Simulated scan of single mutants.
Amino acid sequence: MIRYINAALLDDVCAEAKASPRRRKNRNFHTSDDQPGQRLLNAIEPGSYVMPHRHLDPDKSETMVVLCGTLALVIFDDAGAIIDAAKLSANGAMLGVDLPYGTWHTVFALAPDTVFLEAKAGPYCPLAANEKAPWAPAEGDAGAAAYLAKLMQSLPEHDLP
């Protein structure tokens, strides 16, 4: 089945993200979690926390391209220190990123109605314990909102909206 990525689809997935308690929603283009290619739209709203993580499988490098809105990308070293940060925007100088496997990272929305296209190898597997950052709060933990605020404040001024 051909599926067009158009404004109506982006509006729909953004509305779903706004209605979600997690403030994000994905729309999969792959038909099952065991497919060898995972292709999806991720809609994320400001305030949604994605725990820093990495993918250790050498086949799990991931590509993200922002279609609308503005996304912050933060890269960490093994101890949790920020080693790089970037603003990715559909209308900006940087549209996306290709992250090698094993890279500690997180993303968060800097603008409402942020949607990015994500692609990585399948099958889908939940993150293993050693792929979750031991130095960051888990999603839903009491400290997650404060940690996200700290990450936002750590972005260089030129990377803020």
Rank of each mutant, 00 (worst) to 15 (best):
H158E: 14
W135Q: 13
Q153D: 14
K18H: 13
D98R: 15
K60L: 11
R27M: 10
Q38M: 09
S61M: 00
N6A: 08
G96P: 11
D11E: 12
C14G: 03
I83V: 15
C14A: 09
F76Q: 03
A86I: 01
A119R: 06
L127V: 02
M94P: 00
G140I: 09
A146L: 04
S20D: 05
E139C: 01
Q35S: 11
P156A: 09
Q38D: 00
K150N: 11
A121H: 12
A144P: 00
A142F: 15
A121T: 11
V50T: 07
D77Y: 05
E139T: 08
A72G: 13
A15E: 10
L117E: 04
A119K: 09
Y101H: 15
C125I: 00
M152A: 15
S48R: 03
G69I: 02
Y49S: 00
K87R: 15
E118K: 01
L56K: 15
P123Y: 10
N28R: 15
L67T: 11
P58A: 10
G37H: 06
D12G: 05
M1W: 11
W104C: 13
G96R: 09
L155R: 00
F76Y: 15
N130I: 04
D11P: 01
I2W: 15
N91M: 09
C14E: 02
L95N: 14
S48F: 01
C68I: 11
P123C: 06
A90S: 15
S154L: 10
N42C: 07
L71W: 10
V115D: 05
F116E: 07
V65S: 03
A109T: 04
L67A: 04
P100Q: 13
T31I: 00
P46W: 06
Y101C: 12
I44F: 01
K60N: 14
C14S: 08
L71C: 14
G69P: 09
L148F: 03
F116P: 03
A79N: 05
L9I: 10
D113W: 00
P123H: 12
N42Y: 05
L71M: 15
P21I: 07
L99Q: 07
W104T: 04
A43C: 06
A90Y: 10
E157C: 07
A7P: 02
A93Q: 14
L9T: 07
K132L: 09
D113C: 05
D78C: 09
H158P: 02
S20F: 01
A79F: 10
